[in-house]
Design a protein around this nucleic acid. Structure first.
Lengths: 364, 364
DNA sequence: CCTCTTTATGTAAGGCGGTTACATATATCG
DNA sequence: CGATATATGTAACCGCCTTACATAAAGAGG
């Protein structure tokens, strides 16, 4: 095969086999062959390599079928684990998942908004360690760790700018978490990772171009293009808040000044005039920033997450109305499915992508 | 090789060889082998297939070197041609290029702004035919044709909406031009194609994420992500003009109402107070829409094209100033290199992409 | 003029990855 | 118990690519 490319074909076929293996339910050799379009022999050889790497395993043949019992295989989701972290303004959150993305442990701890960076990092590390312990695995089984955080994060995983978390700017978060847990470290913007989570298993499963709006006391946004986060030159894509004209930054401030957000949404839900008006004002300002993103990207879907998204249609309906007025042919708008845990889940997906990208056929 | 994929490896190697063949200057077999990382034999075999398809050709070996004379090859750029069209408000423009993208003929004709669709189409067809004739080729040698037009064009090449060209909405432009010229037909938004042209050979050669702003009597914009046009769900990506808040649509109107744009820029160039103020107002409004796109996409580069871009820094400098005030860390801003012909050039690149995507190894 | 050096071309052999074809094994069903 | 269905194992073969080595054609130097 090609000199430089060391086994392009095997790589492709390995990926195809792995996909079939994971999507099927303990499939047989013949089923895998049919699913991948490869010959039985090839699938067998690939499975051999995967078994050597601990990624596949033959299990006992099934009882009670017609004909010779088929050899069955399964993906060894427990061959390794990944850790997803979320460093927020008020909490740190950690989740451990196996290679199938099944979450096996979750740990969280509250953090004060004005906590300085070193303590926040210590809390993050602590919650990460606790989570690994709770998952009942040793740290060496972690294959990658990813962290989501508020602020602008560049491609390398360094925090370029964070106005929310004190002392956060300049932090090399990816390298930091990598060192802590002795594996590849990654980091990304929280809204982007939340979007990734929604695209993986949430509201945005069937959309590839997505605008994610994080609507809470803080406003944030993320963009998925072709199912992958769009970072831009500096990692600042979707940071529409900077354009004062759109009133994006002011929205939440205003709402929280008037009252605790929850109270306002409760009031609106009860149909009280003041609450309805406040929510509508908020939705309008939210819509202005969202409209700018929607018009720029023309996404298939807008997902609204963050604390206020719990209000559901009480927030979404006015948002839909305002957005429809601002963009002709506005896209569908839906609420996030994961709420609080979406950032950590997105981090898990990011870590899994990293792990999967490292799977190579071993060239004997 | 794989059942479905009929020759993945050969396809990859064919592409690699083709790239090396085209970038080199009549390279020898050995040079090609070195450039592609493939063995000489493989390259030889691939060239054989390419020669069968008329895409490569052996030429006389070079004189006067040391050692046995090497066999030389060249890419047959004249194996086929593509046609690029631009349907504007005031003109129709056609260009024929060979497979290397060398433009061999250009034809244009003025069209009145209020020309109804059938006549505009007739003019387009006419100018296309004239251009093919001027290129001195028969129509059957056209391998693809692409057209750029103002308005929203969906993925299939149908005009979903055009407010500028009367009767244009609903037109299946791609199919139309394909029928006319008896080959694959494509169509796209003019600003997007202009961006493609700039990325191909113009100001945006070294940038993959680009925002293109068409600044003329009409305003338009296009987005390149990863070097390719980003269309969005309906093809309306970058149509930021809809957001009235940004005053995008009003900008040009105002400028043209005050005076012919050129006069204003001339006045500004002479340092006259009125002209400078008018240009600054225009630049400010232009910057608002541009800022929204820049913040959403975080591109590496903003390219300004369209009629007013001829004013150069007289327009760009105030634009830079306003943009810097609106986005922290604003990207570089530069003028288009192709001006008037960028849309047709982008159409040519689009057609070439289509042709190149169709190159497959013939499976003997 | 002949030979050496340099460069490149031809030809053969072999490996890797994959497929097809056919014989063989092990269930259930009548 | 054999017929049937299903799946496994083995062998032969083919395509694509690479390495290795012999051969060819030029200039350079005696």
């Amino acid at each position: 095969m090609q000199k430089g490319d060391g086994n392009l074909l095997r790589l492709v076929n390995t990926r195809a086999t792995l996909r079939a293996l994971r999507s099927g339910d303990q499939p047989t050799l013949t089923q895998l062959a049919r699913a991948t379009g490869l010959s039985r022999q090839t699938v067998e050889a690939v499975l051999g390599e995967l078994a050597e790497q601990g990624l596949a395993e033959e299990i006992a043949p099934s009882e009670g079928g017609l004909g010779r019992p088929a050899r069955r295989f399964r993906f060894r989701a427990d061959a390794g684990y990944v850790l997803g972290l979320d460093v927020g303004a008020h909490k740190v959150l950690a989740m451990v998942a196996d290679l199938d993305g099944n979450v096996v442990a979750t740990e969280r701890a509250p953090v004060a908004e004005d906590t300085p960076a070193p303590e926040r990092l210590a809390a993050l590390r602590q919650v990460g360690n606790d989570c690994v312990a709770a998952a009942g695995i040793v740290r060496t089984r972690l294959m990658a760790v990813a962290a989501g955080t508020a602020g602008i994060v560049d491609r390398s995983g360094r925090v370029t700018l964070s106005v929310v978390l004190p002392g956060w700017t300049g932090l090399d978060l990816a390298a930091q978490v990598g060192r802590w847990f002795g594996c590849t470290g990654l980091a990304g913007n929280d809204a982007n990772l939340a979007a990734v989570a929604e695209h993986w298993r949430g509201s945005a499963r069937h959309a590839d171009d997505v605008v994610y709006v994080l609507a809470g006391h803080r406003l944030g946004s993320g963009i998925l293009i072709g199912g992958r986060p769009h970072l831009g030159r500096t990692g600042a894509a979707a940071e529409i808040g900077t354009l004062r004209l759109l009133g994006w930054e002011d929205a939440a401030v205003e709402l929280t000044r008037e009252a605790a957000g929850e109270t306002v949404f409760g009031s609106a839900a009860r149909g009280e005039r003041d609450g309805l008006l406040a929510v509508d004002r908020y939705a309008r300002q939210l819509a202005q920033g969202t409209a700018a993103l929607v018009l720029a990207i023309d996404p298939e879907l807008v997902v609204v997450g963050g604390g206020f998204s719990k209000a559901g249609d009480h927030l979404l309906d006015p948002l839909r109305a305002h957005l429809a007025a601002m963009c002709l042919n506005a896209p569908e708008i839906t609420a996030s499915t994961f709420g609080d845990e979406s950032v950590a889940l997105g981090a898990i997906r990011m870590a899994l992508d990293q792990v999967e990208s490292e799977i190579k056929p071993l060239g004997h």
